[in-house]
Amino acid sequence: MRWPLAGACRATHVGTPAVPDRRGLVPLWTVRCAAALIAVLLGALVWNGSGWIVLPVVVAAGAAILPSIGLTVLTLLLLVVAYAVNMPAGSPWLLVFAAGLHAVFVLDLLLVHLPLRGWISLSALRLLGVSFLRVQAVAQPLAVLALLVDDAGSSLPLVLVGVAALVAWCCWLIGRRPPQRSRR
């Protein structure tokens, strides 16, 4: 009796997956790595020097791989709470943190909907990026204003100037016309 059989290695043969046949596609694992990396870097920022850094690393990696909204919530809450507790008030890292938290939110929420393997087109990534920048165009001045308020303390004129500048900026953003598409 032949056991194990010579060709038994082929017993687990599976089909060949369908693959896209064009350029301009990014493998989804790149997006997963980017989401996990941003979360880990932000975690390293707020859990600086602590052994608890392992916790956000594991959770962020899990949120990037597993399609679980719970892990996404946990990742973001760990970052927000750790920032509120560990970071000193008026830290300039706020600007980075506001952008990073938003990026982790967007990427994790994108990955929650999708199977493990796949591709995303550069055009879709560009659309995500434009949407991200539109939000950040308001969020970043707001963060600057918050730092200003924190630093200036009781300097009311400075705060009022900052608020007026932010309102003007927001009004300009809302009031401007979207770029016209050429119809050919």
Binding site: G15, A18, P20, D21, L25, P115, W119, R126, L127
Partner: peptide, 25 residues
């Protein structure tokens, strides 16, 4: 979300209106 026979599903994220050729067995 694409699934060829005997394979785990894969996903292709595109902008609405974008075309993409796919090779399948």
């Amino acid at each position: 979300v694409l699934a060829a026979p005997g394979c785990a599903p894969d996903v292709l994220v595109l902008r609405e209106g974008e075309e993409c050729p796919v090779l399948a067995d």
